[in-house]
Amino acid sequence: MNRYTKQIVNGIVTENPTFVLMLGMCPTLATTTSAINGMGMGLTTTAVLVFSNLIISALRNVIPDKVRVPSYIVIVASLVTVVQFLLEGFVPSLNESLGLYIPLIVVNCIILGRAEAFASKNPVLLSACDGIGMGLGFTVGLTLLGAFREILGAGQIFGKTVTPKSFEPATIFILAPGAFFVLAGLVAIQNKVRLSKKNKEAQKA
């Protein structure tokens, strides 16, 4: 595995932004009412993240240290504006369901976080790979969360009914409180796995 693929895997698994770093919580909870919405939000963020990492990394020796954060914000805001227009033109339905949360990608901590922590210190290609990895990790997290909420709340996944007729969907999982509950459940499961791993290692030692 060379360092480029390693960087991509790192974003998806080791440092998954949703489940491990807990970054970008607002879109994570707000846009995951269904699997397809979560995926759309994830991919939109990925696109912005890859290009912002690319540009910031290419300009890392040009931008003066003192004004770097405002410069990053302007770059990200411009990219988000471009993406917003592309979505409006080509995928109006997604644009409508994500609504306010598309311009809010600007203040998604993942993007500024990666710009500051990675792209400003690393070469262009590696930064782009980091963007792809982090973006896909975010997409996986959002799609999973959206899928769980859609199954529990509507008995569907990607708009197709998958549960038996006897299953009564609980609408609350699509509403606001459900977002908190499902994410709490997923993080708890992850904690459980990590704790049992730790206990096993402790027993061996």
């Binding site: 709490a184 459940g185 708890a188 499961i189 459980k192 704790l195």
Partner: peptide, 12 residues
Amino acid sequence: PESLQGTPIVLV
């Protein structure tokens, strides 16, 4: 419960 400590309980 151990696995709910930290973020999960806050989310609940």
